[in-house]
Simulated scan of single mutants.
Amino acid sequence: MARQYRRANDALRPIKITRHFQHGPAGSVLIEIGRTRVICAASIEDRVPFFLRGTGTGWLKAEYALLPSATETRTPREAAKGKQNGRTQEIQRLIGRSLRAVMDLSALGERTVTIDCDVIEADGGTRTAAITGAFIALVEACDSIYKKGDIFPVTGYAAAVSVGINQANEPVLDLCYEEDSEALVDMNIVMREDLELIELQGTGEGRTYSRSELNTLLDLAQKGIRELIAYEKDALGMELVWRVGRVG
């Protein structure tokens, strides 16, 4: 089946990462993966939730929002409804878990990092793009408090990607909205650079799938994660790429 951008089944969509997209946050990124575009920002406050007070340990939390005009059919603002829907809550928890998995929270001190991910255009993979972009914003933010000789709070690289099985029963990487809406099997996978899994969300949408197919999809995800982390490193450049995982 022909894919968007005439790409192979194991190819990512075109990627563009713009750092310092906003002036206010300690770290900010515009990440564009195909037609999906997400603003990711990281802000740091000198306080922690009550359950961490006096422990010397920091925290990271995430918020996610889809702008009303991000999709072809307008999505009403959740603020106007007075509450977040279940999907929003699930995604922001996923972003938080994914980034905390590559952090030394004690190295933050008693500070809280808040990650804001705002989708300005959605064409599939908004949660995976948010995680990948937010990682870069997080590194930028942590650099603003880092002092020589300290442990850098971000201990390793992480990224996220979608994989699935399409209507032709072919495994595919990085699904756009059309592919995602028709997929027989759909997965979102988050991994560290060492390819240890952080999270795997997999669903048989149109049929069940075998252990062998799962292994194929995991291999495909690993390929995509490696490429996405290479993009992260390119975006951070020599200025910051060496900070990640630094002790002292």
Rank of each mutant, 00 (worst) to 15 (best):
L173V: 05
V29C: 10
T132G: 08
R127G: 03
G54E: 03
T132M: 04
M238C: 09
A221P: 10
R19L: 15
P14W: 00
I91W: 09
E213S: 00
T112M: 00
R74S: 01
I95Y: 00
K16I: 12
R207F: 08
T75K: 15
T128D: 02
F51V: 11
G149S: 09
S69N: 15
D180Y: 02
I120K: 03
A122N: 01
L138R: 01
I229Q: 00
T36E: 10
D46S: 13
E179N: 13
R207E: 01
W59A: 02
A11D: 15
E170A: 12
P68R: 07
D186G: 03
I115K: 03
A79Y: 10
R74W: 02
H23K: 15
I44E: 00
I189C: 06
G206A: 02
V29Q: 11
I120G: 00
I91H: 07
I31Q: 11
D150H: 14
G34E: 09
G164K: 04
G202S: 06
G54D: 10
P153V: 07
T36Q: 14
G58S: 00
A122I: 04
D180S: 03
G125R: 06
T36F: 00
K223R: 08
R100D: 05
Y209Q: 03
C142R: 11
R87I: 02
S98K: 06
Q222E: 09
G248N: 14
T55C: 01
A79P: 05
Q201C: 04
E90S: 02
S210G: 01
Y231R: 15
V154L: 03
E45K: 13
V113N: 01
L218S: 09
E45R: 07
N9M: 14
W59K: 02
S181F: 05
D116V: 02
P68A: 00
R6L: 14
V119R: 12
I115Y: 01
T36R: 09
R97N: 01
R37L: 13
L30C: 07
L94C: 06
A168V: 13
T57Q: 14
P153D: 04
I136W: 06
R35T: 11
I91N: 11
D116Y: 04
E63G: 10
L175M: 12
I229K: 05
T88A: 13
S144I: 09
